[in-house]
């Protein structure tokens, strides 16, 4: 039930949720790239984990999505976002029962 997303992180060794966040908010790679001031190809490389961003770019991405950096990037495989959200919404009820 608590299975993680088994995705190879690419050359960077970093897992990220950029593609999921982008799809969720209906943002194209070009739009995200324009907002961050990078090439659209860089967004593709970031999503595939082929490029590890600098600390500055990682914070820019976090700021853009209004999320903490650790919610977007991780060195360990990330759990599916929907499952994490559902689990956190269920946990207070479990605690009460």
């Amino acid at each position: 039930m608590n299975r993680v997303v088994d995705k190879v992180p690419g050359e960077s060794g970093l897992y990220n949720r950029i593609a999921v966040l982008r799809a969720e908010r209906d943002i194209s790679r070009q739009e995200l790239a324009d907002a961050l001031g990078v090439n659209y190809q860089t967004i593709g490389f970031l999503e595939r984990g082929d490029y590890g961003p600098s600390l500055k770019l990682a914070f820019q991405i976090a700021e853009y999505f209004d999320l903490p950096v650790e919610a977007i990037f991780a060195t360990q495989p990330l759990k599916p976002l929907s499952r994490q959200v559902y689990a956190s919404s269920q946990s207070p009820e479990k605690g009460n029962s």
Binding site: S28, R29, Q30, E31, A33, Y40, Q41, G44, F45, D50
Partner: peptide, 11 residues
């Protein structure tokens, strides 16, 4: 450089 995407694919 790895395989890349076109501008059309990115937008």
């Amino acid at each position: 450089e790895p395989d890349m995407e076109t501008e059309r694919e990115a937008s």
